[in-house]
Nucleic acid binder design. Structure first.
Lengths: 216, 216
DNA sequence: ATGTGTAATTTGTGATCACAAAAAAGGTAA
DNA sequence: TTACCTTTTTTGTGATCACAAATTACACAT
């Protein structure tokens, strides 16, 4: 019952699989802010012992995806208003830079792909699927930013998304918006026109627009 | 021989103590790029078992302070030129923002404290103490940025410092600079004058100056 | 109902072990 | 000396356990 082959499973180590699954769950808003997790619970869900669960949780805590109470219990973060605004500022700093770097490399095939993703965002809005909306929205941004060839900046940005995940759902669950993603269209226009200042502004606005209206 | 009191030691849990110590060691350039670590080695050094060592290492890997080879072995990162430039770009984005936010709150007592730290930086330069130089240099920046009241942005910035730690020593070891920190004086001048654009520029230049001359 | 103190349960922490993969060492032949 | 194969050692991974602290459940008294 001990130690499956080192590189056996599709993803590799067990703690890696647990990490990836929990990370996606948090980033996409499938957990509510303040929701608690236990090592034994995670282990049971994934059919592993506490050890890989602990390692996955440690990683997520280090990334700010989970917070550790004084007694070592872990939960999804409950962000203060100040913290939310700070994270919005980080998005406003990082994402225009990524978009600007991606711009010279954004050819037609990429823009077409972004439009496809954007239509899926619209579908998620139409069916009031908050989690699906977040997932597709982030995929839109990530697809663009991947073209920036800046893995360190992108990783930093994704860490910010991760920290905002649970809060984002609380936000998008609140407002029942039926409007399609307007700012994404601005981004696509600027991309097509090769308009760098316009792109920066559109990305910055899109990144911060939602978070602004979160005064709890 | 099992489980010391939960909140006994000065820092709390054993993995926390291991984490903090290793983190400082890496950030201050006390390890060379590519230097390997082993879980059992760490455990032996700190007088603990592999378990806390593993947790500390996981955290540091998540922060980019250590890298994981395909076989799970951990070492200090060997940064490519592109990666170094990216991290310099991150510093150039984040640190002027922090300085700008700190500016309205930077009163005389803070500036005096910065000047004290800056003189210690000069001492480290004089005695060719690369590690001490890095430590004092970062303390100069952190002391200023703490006034920005922006913990999330500061934490992100410190993660960048952490990733650059080992490489920074390789850099400052190379150039035997005997010149005192010129850019720090510019920062202090701008702070005293309340000159926000000048402060942003000085901080940006100071953050990127060293990394620029690293073409290996 | 409400607060209070005690018992039962849950939970994180750290140690230890077996195992397999990887790396290192050693030896042999060309 | 160099290349190649075998053996030994090192190393990360995951499971399991004991323990103590924290949390919860519960009963009892007011």
């Amino acid at each position: 019952m001990q130690t499956p082959p080192r590189i056996s499973e599709p993803t590799g180590a067990a703690h890696e699989r647990v990490y990836r699954t929990l990370r996606a769950r948090i980033m996409h808003g499938e957990m509510t802010p303040g929701e608690a997790l236990t090592l034994r619970g995670i282990g049971k869900e994934f059919g592993v012992s506490m050890t890989p669960a602990r390692e996955a949780v440690r990683r997520l805590v280090a990334e700010g995806a989970l917070t550790l109470s004084s007694s070592g219990r872990v939960a999804t973060p409950l962000l203060s208003n100040d913290r939310i605004e700070e994270l919005a500022s980080l998005r406003a700093l990082l994402e225009p830079e990524l978009a600007s770097r991606a711009l010279p490399r954004a050819h037609f095939a990429l823009i077409e792909r972004l439009e496809t993703i954007n239509s899926k965002v619209g579908q998620m809005v139409a069916r009031h699927d908050a989690t699906g909306y977040i997932r597709m929205n982030l995929e839109f941004h990530r697809t663009l930013y991947l073209r920036a060839q800046a893995p360190a900046i992108l990783a930093t940005t994704e860490t910010v998304w991760l920290q905002l995940g649970p809060t984002m759902r609380a936000l998008y669950g609140r407002l029942n918006r039926s409007d399609p993603p307007y700012h994404h269209k601005l981004i696509l226009q600027a991309l097509k026109a090769g308009d760098e200042p316009g792109l920066r502004l559109a990305v910055r606005t899109d990144a911060t627009q939602g978070l602004r209206m979160l005064k709890n």
